[in-house]
Amino acid sequence: MPFENRIARANGNDFSCWFEGAGDKDIVFIHGEIHGKAYWEPQILEFMRDHRCLAYDRRGHHGSDNSTFGYSVENQTRDLRALLDHFGMQRPRFVALAFGTTIAANFANQNPERVESMLIGAWSELHDALSYLERWEVAGRRSAATLEAGGKKALVELLRREGGKTMYMVIPPEGDPMREPAIELMASHSAAHYRSGMLEVASSVPDLIPRFEKLDIPVLGICGADDPFKDNPEVLAGMRNFREAGLIEGGGRFVHWQQPETFNSIAREFLDHGRVR
């Protein structure tokens, strides 16, 4: 990776962070569940030219993987607030993906004055988090048992065989150049996180939509055409400054990684100019 890992202490936990760029505009990137900050590299390379960019491994992920509890959305919202304070980011733009969008939206509900605008990718978790519990419980148990029996190598092999087929359906299909990086990313957590941390996150998502759709901040939804859990813009039809971008072809759950030039172009039009293509 081209960036320096920085360890920031916030809300009682150590977080592995990238903090890059310069200027008077800030962006914070929030990854999804059993993902990691690594996949924001194409966005940071683009936006660090004229923004201060923060990406961090959420509690229990990768370089921040030292927490045995506290995965709830509320506690991870406290993590986010403490990290923004640590890095002096008063009113950043937010770019969040999947379960990262639940943290971003919960933060915005509680601190609307601290959000300039928000891009939410693959955001069905905002309103459909509980639907993940049953399949995550099965996949998580299988992942944890495989990891404990054979280590990360065994889990990678399992995800090569079954990822995107019978478990973790967001893993790109065979032939996609991002399949192996996604498998590596999703196989890099502790057994405890697969077994219980993921379930704590999904089961703790509050009813975000009623407060969120009343916020007067610009919000853009974005989704890959091949995402197995596509966005439902009707859910936020009552939000005055919400727009959903057109589906991006050639990308799924990790569309920002699979089609970074297209994603970055749409993101810049929205974040810098308020326009939606």
Rank of each mutant, 00 (worst) to 15 (best):
L158S: 02
K165H: 11
R243M: 10
G252E: 11
Q258Y: 14
F3M: 13
L185E: 12
W257G: 02
H51T: 07
L155Q: 07
P206A: 05
D85T: 14
G63K: 05
G88N: 13
A105Y: 03
L185R: 11
I30F: 01
I27Q: 00
A149Y: 04
Y194R: 11
A225K: 15
L84T: 05
G251N: 11
I183E: 08
Q43V: 10
K37I: 06
H193W: 14
D24E: 15
S64W: 04
P92Q: 04
R141S: 11
K152F: 00
P181V: 14
S188W: 11
D272G: 05
R275P: 01
V201P: 05
A8N: 01
E261C: 01
G70M: 09
M118Y: 04
K25P: 02
R160A: 05
T77C: 09
E174S: 10
L208T: 05
E269L: 01
G32K: 13
S64R: 02
V156K: 06
M239C: 08
A96Q: 12
T77V: 10
G32P: 11
W123P: 00
G70V: 10
P177H: 15
A245C: 13
Q76M: 15
N264V: 10
A122E: 08
L247A: 13
A149P: 00
Q259L: 11
R161W: 03
T68S: 12
E213Y: 01
E134Q: 10
D57F: 06
P210K: 01
S72V: 07
W40H: 09
L159N: 02
H62G: 04
G70E: 13
T146W: 04
V115Q: 01
F229C: 07
E148C: 00
V73W: 00
D14H: 09
I44N: 09
N13R: 10
R240Y: 04
Q259Y: 03
N66E: 12
F242M: 12
A145T: 11
S117Y: 00
W18H: 11
G150C: 03
G164S: 08
V115D: 01
H51Y: 15
K165A: 13
P172K: 09
E33T: 15
R268N: 02
I209K: 00
M48H: 05
S124K: 04
L147N: 06
E148K: 15
Q259E: 15
L159F: 04
E125K: 03
H62T: 09
I27S: 04
K230D: 02
M186Y: 12
E4P: 04
D128Q: 06
P177M: 13
Y56N: 07
T102R: 06
S204L: 09
L215K: 00
I103S: 08
A182Y: 15
R59Y: 12
S143G: 07
L155D: 07
M1V: 09
D57T: 08
M198R: 05
P181Q: 10
E157A: 11
R211F: 03
T68R: 15
I120A: 12
L208R: 03
A98P: 07
V28S: 02
C17F: 00
V156S: 01
H273K: 12
E261W: 08
C223F: 07
V156R: 05
R93M: 09
P233T: 14
H51A: 09
R49T: 14
H189R: 12
Y194E: 08
